[in-house]
């Protein structure tokens, strides 16, 4: 475990906590894409299947359980408990356009043609695009609350920090995983436009508002 990896995981954890707290404290999920949250639930479920048969470390098991349970809780809060506040009119991204192609790609390009490996690969590909419904929602409404921006910043930073972790591991351990690296690059690039707006606007106390 290197510093980039640890910071990446903490950033990921922070994002999930920010989102849950925002929904719980304001009793509202306005401005949050339920479609993206469903995709993340699919991502964690298909990636962490090894939880039942492979023990890696207490840290690994603990984090997987947190990510899975937080993700299902978020989906529950959005579609059940605070359903009335859910912005479904703006959250119109068709998730099958992301799920089906990434699944086909995982069948074609993977490390090993086994069920667990194909599902792991699918989760890596799907995660790289899972934020699109959320970014689409922000672009449709033209703005995002500060707390939603902090969530997106923490979530985007996580894979960016993993990229640094992979650069480090390549040199220090002679280890690399091309599938994770390419998908991680795609994932981070998708956030670039948002990072720019976050740094130039939200950090200066302004609301994230897209230019008309």
């Amino acid at each position: 475990m290197n510093i980039f990896r640890l910071l990446g995981d903490l950033s990921h954890l922070l994002a999930i906590i920010i989102l849950l707290l925002k929904i719980w404290k304001t009793r509202s999920c306005a401005g949050i894409s339920g479609k993206s949250q469903i995709l993340f639930a699919i991502v964690y479920t298909t990636r962490y299947l090894d939880l039942v048969n492979t023990y890696i470390s207490a840290y690994n098991t603990f984090m997987k359980i947190i990510f899975l349970s937080a993700s299902y809780t978020t989906v529950y809060l959005m579609y059940m408990k605070f359903k009335a506040t859910y912005d479904h009119n703006h959250d119109t991204f068709r998730i099958e356009f992301l799920v089906l192609p990434t699944f086909v790609l995982a069948l074609l390009i993977n490390h090993e043609p086994s069920v667990v490996e194909v599902l792991w690969t699918f989760s890596i590909y799907l995660e790289s695009l899972a934020i699109l419904p959320q970014l689409f929602l922000v672009s449709k409404t033209g703005e995002a609350e500060s707390i939603t921006s902090h969530y997106l910043f923490a979530l985007g930073s996580y894979r960016g920090l993993y990229l640094l972790n992979w650069v480090y591991r390549y040199y220090a351990e002679d280890h690399y995983d091309l599938i994770a690296i390419v998908a991680g690059l795609v994932q981070t690039v998708l956030y670039c436009d948002f990072f720019y707006l976050y740094i130039t606007k939200v950090l200066k106390g302004k609301k994230l508002q897209l230019p008309a």
């Binding site: 090894d50 990510f67 490390h111 792991w120 280890h175 995983d177």
Partner: peptide
Amino acid sequence: KRDTRSKDEL
């Protein structure tokens, strides 16, 4: 086959 070391990542 995926390297076991990458299975440690989340």
